[in-house]
Each structure stands twice: as structure tokens, then as C-alpha cells.
């Protein structure tokens, strides 16, 4: 289903790096990666996952998960926790807590607090814990400043450092527009996955390109980096990856 793309990204393991950042270029949809990672984490026994829905509702991930062969509803409330910001805003309208600075707290501060509370209550009883944030650019849309988003990510990275088996995975859309924030957030982690469109145009058999950059952990001097490029195609029920040059025009 999604094993090949996770293998290519180096995320098909029980123990994940502390902080992983996914950069999504404009006009490219990388939300399939969130669905793939979510499915992989849910399949590991006693691994907790927290999904923070900023771009899509929880229902989207449920439906996409069904296509990939897993049912999120079975895990919800057990190993899967959900903070559905979008649903809250839709339900409560303009009075939603995410739109008001209650008690002087900004949106990002409230979100960090909620994530921290979920981690506190679930981390101890799980072998590992993963926090998935599906789109940081929505925070900008809702009025957060660059500094607030950067602080938000640093708080999450600090949370990951505090606990051994905690992983934070973030995704940022329009990374070409928010280039500064994108680079700064990527620097917080060991793995950066860039979802890029094909520069040559639209191709029926390939949707885009994944550029995976990984910092090699060599003690305190982690300066060496590996880069890998794969092409991907999102099908109805799976995601396929190809090495560059593997796909050609069929005559």
C-alpha cells in the first residue's frame, strides 16, 4: 500500500527520528504522506499517535485511511488522539477558541498547550508517541506571525528532545512562499522531505518528486547529509515510487 514510499523516506521503522519536516511546494498535494505515516504508526502495537488536523478534517484521514487499508475509527480514543481544529472552527463559528486570544494566549500557544496535554496523558502508557501536524501554513492563514510559528515548532522540537520515543512530524504547504520559515523549521529536525512538482510539466504516470534529506547522526557533530530523490505516483489505493529515469515515454 504505502510501504514503498515510507521506505524511500526512511520512515518505515518503529523508531523514528525526533523531528521530521515535510515541505510542500505550491500546487502540489503532499497530504498522502500524512495518511501513509498515520497508517504505519497505527499498525505498530502500543504506539500512540496524535493527529492535529489543520488542513483536512479527521473525516478525510479516515476515508484516505480506508483506501490504504486501515480504519482510524478503531484506534481513535485508544492509540489515536485527534485535535481537529477545523471542525472546532466550523462548529463554533467565529466564537471558536482558536480564533480568539483567550487569556492572552495566541493560537500557537493554545495549540502547543493542547498537544502537550495530550502527550502528558498518553506518553507514559505507550512505547512510542508520534505527533502529526498536517499543515503549518494554516497557522499563518489564521493570523499567526512567522515568529509565533517558529516558536511553535521549537516548542515541539523541545518536546521531542525531552522524551526519548517521541516524534514530531510537521508539514508546511507553499514552502516556496514561506521559504524562511520552512528552512528554519527543517533545521530543527534530522529528516526533511520536500514534495516537489515536476518542472517539465504534468505527466500522467508521475505526480511529483520527493527529495529526502537526512542528517547522519554521528555523535555531536551531525553535519553530514544524504540526499535521495524519488518520483511518486498516488493511485487510488496505493502510492508507488520510481527512481528517476525509470519511467519513460512509452512508444
Amino acid at each position: 500500500m504505502a510501504t514503498s514510499v515510507l521506505l524511500a523516506c526512511g520512515l518505515n521503522e518503529q523508531k523514528l527520528p525526533g523531528f521530521v519536516h515535510i515541505s510542500e511546494e505550491s500546487n502540489v498535494d503532499g497530504s498522502f504522506l500524512i495518511s501513509c505515516i498515520l497508517g504505519q504508526r497505527l499498525r505498530i502495537s502500543n504506539a500512540g499517535t496524535l493527529l492535529v488536523c489543520l488542513q483536512h478534517h479527521y473525516q478525510h484521514y479516515f476515508n484516505a485511511g480506508m483506501r490504504l487499508g486501515y480504519n482510524t475509527n478503531i484506534f481513535q480514543g485508544k492509540t489515536l488522539g485527534v485535535i481537529d481544529v477545523l471542525s472546532d472552527m466550523a462548529g463554533e463559528g467565529l466564537a471558536s477558541k482558536w480564533l480568539r486570544n483567550s487569556e492572552g494566549q495566541t493560537l500557537t500557544e493554545q495549540l502547543v498547550e493542547d498537544i502537550r496535554a495530550q502527550v502528558e496523558s498518553n506518553y507514559a502508557s505507550r512505547n512510542s508517541y508520534t505527533v502529526l501536524i498536517d499543515n503549518l501554513s494554516i497557522l499563518f492563514n489564521l493570523g499567526a506571525s512567522k515568529l509565533q510559528v517558529q516558536q511553535f515548532c521549537q516548542d515541539l522540537a523541545a518536546l521531542a528532545k525531552e522524551r526519548e520515543n517521541l516524534t514530531v512530524i510537521t508539514k508546511l504547504s507553499n514552502s516556496d512562499i514561506y521559504q524562511l520559515t520552512d528552512n528554519n523549521v527543517a533545521k530543527l529536525g534530522q529528516v526533511r522531505i520536500q514534495v516537489l512538482r515536476l518542472k517539465s510539466g504534468v505527466f500522467r504516470e508521475v505526480d511529483g518528486k520527493l527529495l529526502i534529506e537526512r542528517v547522519l547522526e554521528e555523535g555531536n557533530y551531525a553535519c553530514e547529509e544524504t540526499r535521495k530523490e524519488v518520483l511518486y505516483k498516488v493511485n487510488d489505493r496505493n502510492v508507488k515510487v520510481f527512481a528517476p529515469g525509470e519511467i519513460g515515454v512509452k512508444v
Binding site: 478534517h57 478525510h60 472552527m89 466550523a90 467565529l94 480564533l99 494554516i138 492563514n141 493570523g143
Partner: peptide, 18 residues
Amino acid sequence: GEDLIKFLTLLMASVRNC
């Protein structure tokens, strides 16, 4: 720009929810 983007984000949240 700020208002338009915020409006569309909240509209997206509402439309998807029903």
C-alpha cells in the same frame, strides 16, 4: 490579503464540515 486568506480558511472549515 490577510482577511481574504483567513476568510477562505474559515469557509473551507465550514464547507467541509457539512
